[in-house]
Design a protein around this nucleic acid. Structure first.
Length: 488
DNA sequence: AGATTGATTGTTGTA
DNA sequence: TACAACAATCAATCT
């Protein structure tokens, strides 16, 4: 269990976070969390993990096997360590942010829902992780605001430490921004939605609010329905007759118009978003999708209809779409590390309208710091990223570190925060295998357990996948793997 | 205007 | 009367 947990968490995180040379800390943190049971639920229960292992029996079986063989998880007796409680803010931030990256990188693509999307396109940020955290530890939800602040401060620290060249790449920045906004959005959606859906505000506030609307129009419509035999539209007292036009009946025989690319994109994306954060409202999802949509290149947008067709006729087995070839909804995968300054810069004018919308003054984060945390009523969100085939580099990142965390070889000794910090500090560049010999000592055979393109590369591929050194926030976007994404 | 999705609400039909 | 099934509406966004 622990291994799987670490694999999924650390591996997934590291895949994205590796760019920032934080893999070590990531791994350690992930292991810590896993051991601590933060993610235990996700990997203990079939229900929680079924999604992740869906289409990937091996993984599931592995998880189960591990569960059966290692029921001594409780033996660790380590109190759940939730990010908010982590003593070291930087690490906490790291974990939280990485969580965002994790979902960001693996949330969408290869789950079959978004067959042709490149997984990078799925900037469905912190939904899942935030959900997981919220589910697993009620603490986190209440701490989100704090985390958010920490994240911001942390990002600011990052920003201050580098000459933000991001501004030199508007497109990337755009995507970064949108992704960030999405991350923020989603990560906060939990809280927000909790508030929004709180009993005080009746879900049907719109329609439930009884407002005796007895207009002639309604009478007319009533008569119409009586005559036509159609069911009368819900009287909806509260609903203002704002859309009388909308009521006009559609001809059932009317040939359906071709669905717009955006609609298709929305359809696909929202599924994933909702899957990861069921509590996300339509508005939230819509904004996120819009943001993502804006981040897409024209060419990618154009391809949407095809995508939709492909999906509708989804006769092709999931395996066929495993290798995300040419990203159709390619979106910079690193998209989320945007510093406040970057955001600010974009807000100042360079940002796309959509992002401005998303990031703008819209109360996307209402009550974030004031409202009490919502009850951790997040249903287990089926991890939609489980089946996502990871690109070779991603797999490499996902597979190699986890293996190294095998409980068999890694005693459940948690690194101290100080150690983590030290290690992090000592490895400013993405730690390659040379930095972590223990990683390479594990067979890369595990690389075949996930669907998708087999990843011949293992930890040794780290170097090629993640250029060492200045893999900073900005330079990471220039990684080869993402190049193609920007070529469009 | 119409499309996307899902929750909600109202209406209708049936047991 | 209770329940199930169906239909309509709404949200934000894009085409």
């Amino acid at each position: 269990m622990q291994q799987n947990c670490i694999e999924a968490v650390a591996g997934g995180f590291s895949h994205c976070l590796g760019f920032f040379g934080m893999r070590l800390g990531l791994l350690l943190l992930a292991r810590r969390w896993c051991i601590a049971g933060v993610f235990q639920q996700k990997f203990d229960g079939e229900s929680a993990y079924v999604g992740m292992s869906d289409g990937n029996p091996e993984l599931l079986s592995t998880s189960q096997t591990y569960n059966s063989q290692n029921e001594s998880n409780e033996d660790y007796e380590i109190p759940p360590i939730t990010p908010p409680n982590l003593p070291e803010p930087p690490l906490l931030h790291l974990g939280d942010h990485e969580a965002s990256y994790h979902s960001l990188c693996h949330s969408l693509a290869p789950n079959g829902l978004l067959p042709a999307y490149s997984y990078q396109a799925m900037d469905l940020p912190a939904i899942m992780v935030s959900n997981m955290l919220a589910q697993d530890s009620h603490l986190l939800s209440g701490q989100l605001p704090t985390i958010q602040e920490m994240v911001h401060s942390e990002v600011a620290a990052y920003d201050s430490g580098r000459p933000g060249p991001l501004l030199g790449r508007p497109a990337m920045l755009t995507s970064h921004m949108s992704a960030l906004s999405q991350s923020q959005l989603i990560s906060q959606m939990g809280i927000r939605s909790g508030i929004t859906h709180s009993p005080p505000s009746p879900p049907g506030s719109k329609s439930a609010t009884p407002s005796p609307s007895s207009s002639t129009q309604e009478e007319e419509s009533e008569a119409h329905f009586k005559m036509s035999g159609e069911k009368r539209p819900s009287t909806d007292p509260g609903k203002k007759a704002k859309n009388p036009k909308k009521k006009k009946k559609k001809d059932p025989n009317e040939p359906q118009k071709p669905v717009s690319a955006y609609a298709l994109f929305f359809r696909d994306t929202q599924a994933t978003i909702k899957g990861q954060n069921p509590s996300a409202t339509f508005g939230d999802v819509s904004k996120i999708v819009a943001s993502m949509w804006d981040s897409l290149g024209e060419e990618q947008k154009q391809s949407s209809p095809d995508q939709g067709e492909t999906k509708s006729t989804q006769a092709n087995p999931p395996a066929k779409m495993l290798p995300p070839k040419q990203p159709m909804y390619a979106m910079p995968g690193l998209a989320s590390f945007l510093t406040p300054s970057d955001l600010q810069a974009f807000r100042s004018g360079a940002s796309p309208a959509s992002l401005a919308r998303t990031l703008g003054s819209k109360s996307l984060l209402p009550g974030l710091s004031t409202s009490p945390p919502p009850p951790p009523a997040f249903p287990l969100s089926p991890p939609l990223h489980q089946q996502l085939p990871l690109p070779p580099h991603a797999q490499g990142a996902l597979l190699s570190p986890p293996v190294s965390m095998s409980p068999a070889t890694q005693p459940p000794v948690l690194p101290t925060p100080m150690a983590l910090q030290v290690q992090l500090a000592m490895s400013p560049s993405p730690p390659g295998p040379q930095d972590f010999p223990h990683i390479s000592e594990f067979p890369s055979g595990s690389g075949s357990r996930s669907p998708g393109p087999s990843n011949p590369t293992n930890s040794g591929d780290w170097d090629s996948s993640y250029p060492s050194g200045e893999c900073g926030i900005s330079t990471c976007s220039l990684l080869p793997r993402d190049k193609s994404l920007y070529l469009t």
